[in-house]
Computed example of a mutant assay.
Amino acid sequence: MKNDLRQRRETDGSSQADLAAAVDVTRQTINAIERDRYDPSIELAFKLAAHFDCRIEELFEPELDGAGRNQEG
């Protein structure tokens, strides 16, 4: 899932450790999300969106790989 977490965090002037503490996860979790190596739980996605005062859809962009599309045949 693509995200702009790193850009928002840097604009905010926060370190990965600062953000991790604010949403109650490890710095490694924030690093993994920023590097697109880990998709956050829905609960964590909500916490991150609340922290940055935005909607989840503004922070994360799912890569659907055709899911949700009508497929014929």
Rank of each mutant, 00 (worst) to 15 (best):
E10F: 02
E10K: 15
T11E: 14
G13W: 06
S14E: 00
S14G: 02
S14Q: 10
S15C: 03
S15D: 02
Q16P: 03
Q16D: 05
D18Y: 00
D18H: 03
L19C: 06
L19P: 09
L19W: 02
A21H: 10
A21E: 13
D24Q: 15
D24A: 14
D24H: 15
V25L: 01
T26E: 07
R27S: 10
R27H: 06
R27C: 06
Q28C: 01
Q28V: 10
T29R: 05
I30Q: 00
I30C: 08
N31Q: 09
N31Y: 14
A32M: 09
A32K: 15
A32I: 01
E34T: 05
R37F: 03
R37H: 11
Y38W: 06
D39H: 05
D39G: 09
P40A: 10
S41Y: 13
E43W: 13
E43C: 09
A45R: 08
A45P: 15
F46T: 00
F46V: 05
K47I: 02
L48P: 11
A49W: 08
A49P: 10
A50F: 00
A50C: 03
A50N: 12
H51V: 00
H51K: 14
H51P: 00
H51F: 04
F52I: 10
D53Q: 15
C54K: 13
R55P: 03
R55E: 11
I56L: 07
I56K: 04
I56Q: 08
E58W: 09
E58F: 11
E58H: 12
E61F: 15
E61I: 13
E61K: 14
P62T: 01
P62H: 00
E63M: 11
E63P: 00
L64N: 01
L64M: 08
L64Y: 04
D65F: 08
G66C: 07
